[in-house]
Design a protein around this nucleic acid. Structure first.
Length: 249
DNA sequence: TTGTGTTTTATTGCCTCC
DNA sequence: GGAGGCAATAAAACACAA
């Protein structure tokens, strides 16, 4: 809708309207009847203003008019020029008023929709953030557990090596030949099962990255996105896709 | 009554499409 | 190049607390 509508053309008329001294009867007869009526109206406004009376300014549409327009808007948010003319006639409005009403109504609808979308996104974001915090806590607990296990394992290794050394010494004293085989082979079955008990693996599925020994300290570093990045996912600076709006048009 | 915030009507300028 | 759409904005009308 170009401002070159009726009111715009009126503005153009105002800007090109002749100076006051030329608005005499002589000039009046030069213009078309329609144009002349408009000029008369402007002159009437001028007279009213001079007399201190308020000129007719913005007028609110009547409740009935708005109701009718709202009803139509529910069905069709846009109306073509033909329909606009018809509606204007039915509602006793200027076609441009009808067109402007629909334009403003679409703007209001869009603003409301944006508000709704923002609410939804915020709710999603809050839920996601909560979930992220929970997972983070879980992760911290698992890392702490991993540290404990690593320490226990180291401790166990130390104790075992000390014990093995004394065993070897003892065996060497008893039978030097056979002891060599025992040291190189697997340890006793009871030892082995003990070992298994100590290092029962916890659920690695829940941990980011591999939790094999060399990676223990890197579990957090392997997280692909930082906490900061996660929190900025629904940044308010980022505009929504507006898919709701564009798909309908 | 008046100051202030909100809503509604209207304008302007820019953009896209035919 | 004109028609029509939208965003940004102005300004009148309205609501309401103090």
């Amino acid at each position: 809708m170009n401002p070159s509508g009726s009111l715009c053309s009126m503005n153009a008329v105002i800007s090109i309207s002749p100076p006051e001294e030329e608005k005499n009867s002589k000039m009046k007869q030069v213009y078309s009847r329609e144009f002349q009526e408009m000029l008369d109206g402007l002159e009437e406004d001028d007279r009213l203003e001079e007399a201190g009376q308020a000129t007719e300014k913005k007028k609110r549409l009547s409740v009935a008019q708005v109701k009718a327009l709202e009803k139509i808007f529910e069905v069709e948010s846009k109306v073509d020029s033909e329909r606009t003319l018809k509606l204007a006639e039915e509602l006793e409005l200027q076609p441009r008023q009808v067109a402007i009403w629909f334009q403003n109504r679409r703007a209001r609808w869009k603003a409301k929709q944006l508000e709704k979308d923002y609410g939804l996104l915020k709710a999603n974001y809050d839920a996601l953030k909560l979930d992220y915090n929970n997972t983070q806590q879980e992760n911290d607990a698992l890392i702490a557990k991993a540290y404990t296990l690593r320490d226990l394992k180291a401790k166990f290794k130390d104790e075992k090596s000390v014990k093995e050394e004394s065993d070897i010494d003892a065996e060497l004293l008893m039978s030097p030949a056979s002891s060599c085989l025992q040291v190189n082979g697997s340890s006793s079955s009871s030892d082995s099962s003990n070992h298994q008990q100590w290092f029962q693996p916890f659920e690695p599925r829940k941990v980011v990255g591999n939790l094999h020994e060399p990676q223990l300290l890197k579990a957090e570093e392997q997280c692909m996105i930082t906490a900061e990045e996660c929190c900025n996912f629904f940044s308010v600076d980022q505009a929504p896709s507006l898919q709701w709006y564009f798909t309908g048009h």
